Simulated scan of single mutants.
Amino acid sequence: MSDLVAIVYPSLEKAEAVRQEFLTLQKEYLISLDDAVIAVKTDDNKIKLHQMVNTTATGAASGSFWGLLVGMVFLMPVVGVVIGAASGALGGLLADFGINDKFMKDLSSSIQPGNAVLFLLIRSMTADKVLEEIRGSGGVVLKTSLNNEKETALREALAGSPVHDTPAAPSA
């Protein structure tokens, strides 16, 4: 079971920098993320989501490939690419992987304009090493599905508090 963590930052740039830290930790096999999305509240109170993967573009690329392949069989590769790209883009646009978009937009509506929320869906992590790496990165925990002990350790790490005995990592 995955754990959800939502952390508020004063800007998109700061949230993106922290997301990149988490992605680096994932490359080092210290954390396994199912999703990492940044939601920003604009000055006109709209919420814009910055997904890790652009499902529309991915769907269009995949659809183009399969459309080309099918089009070649019927000797109409250009038509196949066009139809495949359109259907793939539509499928990608309608797909919602990881954290529910509506949930992120609803939760982000409570923040101030200009602020950003980093949403992380954590499958598993080596808690002590991850918390040490993100120590002092700032941010305010908005919501988590972590137990109280783990949430406290996360809050302390973000604030840069001294290292305590950290709890066990969420497991897969």
Rank of each mutant, 00 (worst) to 15 (best):
M1P: 00
M1A: 12
D3P: 01
D3W: 02
D3E: 12
L4G: 01
V5W: 06
V5R: 04
V5Q: 06
V5P: 01
A6V: 15
S11G: 03
L12K: 03
L12S: 07
K14Y: 06
A15L: 15
A17T: 09
A17H: 06
A17F: 05
R19E: 08
E21N: 03
L23R: 12
T24R: 10
L25Q: 05
Q26S: 04
K27P: 10
E28H: 13
E28C: 11
E28L: 15
L33A: 04
D34F: 04
D34K: 04
D34H: 06
A36L: 05
D44H: 09
N45F: 07
K48S: 12
K48I: 15
L49N: 00
L49W: 11
H50T: 05
H50G: 05
H50K: 11
H50D: 06
Q51L: 07
Q51R: 13
M52W: 10
T55P: 06
G59L: 11
A61Q: 02
A61L: 15
A61T: 11
S62Q: 12
G63R: 13
S64E: 02
W66N: 03
W66H: 01
G67L: 14
G67S: 13
L69Y: 14
V70H: 00
F74M: 08
F74D: 07
L75P: 01
L75N: 04
M76V: 04
M76W: 14
M76H: 07
V78H: 03
V79F: 08
V79Y: 09
V79M: 13
G80F: 02
G80R: 00
V81I: 15
I83K: 06
G84N: 09
A85C: 09
A86G: 08
S87Y: 08
G88W: 03
L90F: 11
L93V: 05
L94R: 01
L94D: 01
L94F: 11
F97I: 12
F97D: 02
F97M: 12
G98S: 03
G98N: 01
D101K: 11
K105P: 00
L107F: 01
L107Q: 09
L107P: 00
S110F: 12
I111G: 07
G114F: 06
A116Y: 00
V117S: 07
F119V: 12
F119G: 02
F119T: 05
F119S: 04
L120K: 03
I122G: 03
I122T: 11
R123H: 07
R123N: 13
S124W: 14
S124N: 07
M125E: 10
D128S: 07
K129R: 14
K129L: 12
E133P: 02
I134T: 01
G136Y: 06
G139A: 15
G139P: 02
V141L: 15
V141D: 08
T144K: 03
L146P: 00
N147P: 04
E149C: 07
E149K: 00
E149A: 10
E149L: 09
E149S: 02
K150M: 07
E151L: 12
A159E: 09
G160V: 08
H164L: 09
D165G: 11
D165S: 13
T166E: 08
T166D: 00
P167C: 14
A169E: 04
P170M: 10
S171N: 11
A172Y: 11
